[in-house]
């Protein structure tokens, strides 16, 4: 292939390169902005204490599923006290249920199993269930849930 040594070829190449990069940069920026428009930014989380009722609402050894403003939780009462877990399986987001006989949380999607402390003990879940703080105020239980 012949190499062009004249100014005309060089000038044309430079001008086309600048225009090409300019166009790419412009389109890229526009594309990026459009993508940002489509991807909502994560809203800041804050903790909120939500009243879930008296302790007696949950029988000992049992867990009660609740929906607190979209947060699906499971309130479990054992001899050690009351604990609240997110029902979202840490594998692929299905909802876990409490098995009273086995004293375990079981995910129906891939048989992920968590013990009563929320620890992942079998199946594909990579980490324990998310846990929420439970506070007792004047005989009533409150769960500190994340809300956006």
């Amino acid at each position: 292939m012949a190499i062009i040594h004249d100014d005309f070829g060089r000038r044309r190449f430079l001008s086309q390169a600048v225009m090409g990069f300019g166009l790419l940069f412009g389109m890229g920026t526009l594309g990026l902005r459009f993508l940002q428009f489509l991807i909502p930014s994560p809203t800041p989380k804050r903790y909120e204490a939500v009243l879930i009722g008296a302790e007696s609402r949950v029988p000992v050894g049992d867990a009660v599923p609740m929906d607190l403003g979209g947060q699906k939780i499971m309130v479990l009462r054992t001899n050690d006290g009351v604990v609240a877990f997110s029902r979202r399986c840490t594998d692929l987001g299905c909802l876990v249920s409490w098995s009273k006989e086995r004293e375990q949380f079981v995910c129906p999607c891939h048989q992920g199993v968590f013990d009563k402390t929320g620890r992942n003990i079998a199946g594909p879940p990579p980490r324990p269930l998310d846990r929420f703080e439970v506070v007792k105020r004047g005989g009533q239980l409150y769960v500190n849930i994340q809300s956006s």
Binding site: L35, L38, I39, P40, P42, G70, L92, G93, C94, C109, S148
Partner: peptide, 29 residues
């Protein structure tokens, strides 16, 4: 639940996973 599971699956992709999850779901959930 199929939609939930598949979008979660996409969300676990490295780097692009989380933006893709937000893009598809329009939020976290």
């Amino acid at each position: 639940w199929g939609m939930t599971v598949v979008t979660n699956m996409l969300g676990t992709l490295p780097i692009v996973g989380q933006p893709l999850l937000y893009l598809l779901r329009g939020g976290e959930e």
